[in-house]
Amino acid sequence: MPRWKALPEDLDPQIREFTSQLRRLVDRSGLNINAVADRTGYSKTSWERYLNGRLLAPRGAVVALAEVTGTPQHHLTTMWELAERAWSRAEMRHDMTMEAIRITQARAALGELGATAPDAPAGGRSGGGHPRAGAGSAVPAAGGGP
């Protein structure tokens, strides 16, 4: 059975390379995850996330790993900086995708409100309706106000 799980398919190549380098350092050190956690001050769970590509290791964890494994910090932190930029770009893409989904859902909800039947209850809501945007907010009725 392999020591490491396969990295996520959609992982940015820069992050993949950095994560693979962290794995190589741990392998070469001969330490298990518990020992890495004990010696770096970062939890076993955190190291599992870092080494499986689910979370980018913070700079402090990378520096601690370099110290524990006798690796020059400069090279590892340079790789971390590149991976961190890639991680930020990936988060930005995710945020933009989520925002686009929310906009699409809002437009769909507004489109449904604009197409309410003439005998719909006051407030433009029919049947189950849509949740309110926030406490005290109201959705104007289709066709205008008072």
Rank of each mutant, 00 (worst) to 15 (best):
E99L: 11
L76H: 06
V62M: 07
G134A: 15
N34P: 00
G41C: 01
A117Y: 11
T19N: 11
S29E: 12
R89C: 00
Q73S: 07
T19E: 13
Q73W: 09
D12C: 04
T69A: 07
L55V: 12
R28M: 10
Q73E: 12
A120Y: 05
H75T: 08
T116L: 08
R54W: 00
G41P: 01
Q21D: 11
L55T: 15
A115K: 12
T104S: 14
T97F: 08
W4A: 13
P146H: 08
G41T: 03
E84H: 14
E48T: 09
A109M: 11
S126K: 09
E112T: 06
A61M: 03
P13H: 03
T104K: 12
N34H: 07
A66T: 03
L11F: 10
A35L: 10
F18V: 12
P140A: 04
Q14M: 04
V139N: 09
E112I: 02
Q14H: 02
T116M: 13
A90K: 05
R23P: 09
G60Y: 00
T19A: 11
Y42E: 06
A120R: 15
N32D: 15
P118N: 08
T69H: 01
K44C: 01
A61Y: 01
Q14D: 11
P118Y: 09
P121R: 05
R49T: 08
R39G: 11
Q105F: 06
A35C: 01
R102K: 13
A61P: 01
R132P: 04
H74R: 12
A108V: 05
G70H: 05
P2T: 12
T78L: 14
Y50H: 15
E84T: 02
L56D: 05
P13S: 05
V68L: 12
W47S: 09
T45L: 07
R89W: 00
M1P: 05
N32K: 13
H74K: 07
E48G: 07
T71I: 01
V36D: 08
E112Y: 01
T40M: 02
K5I: 01
V26G: 07
Q21E: 14
E17M: 02
G53C: 04
P118M: 09
E81P: 01
P140K: 10
N32P: 03
G111K: 02
A57I: 02
T116N: 06
G129L: 04
A37D: 05
N34K: 10
A135D: 05
L110H: 03
M79D: 10
S20W: 03
L11T: 09
A109K: 13
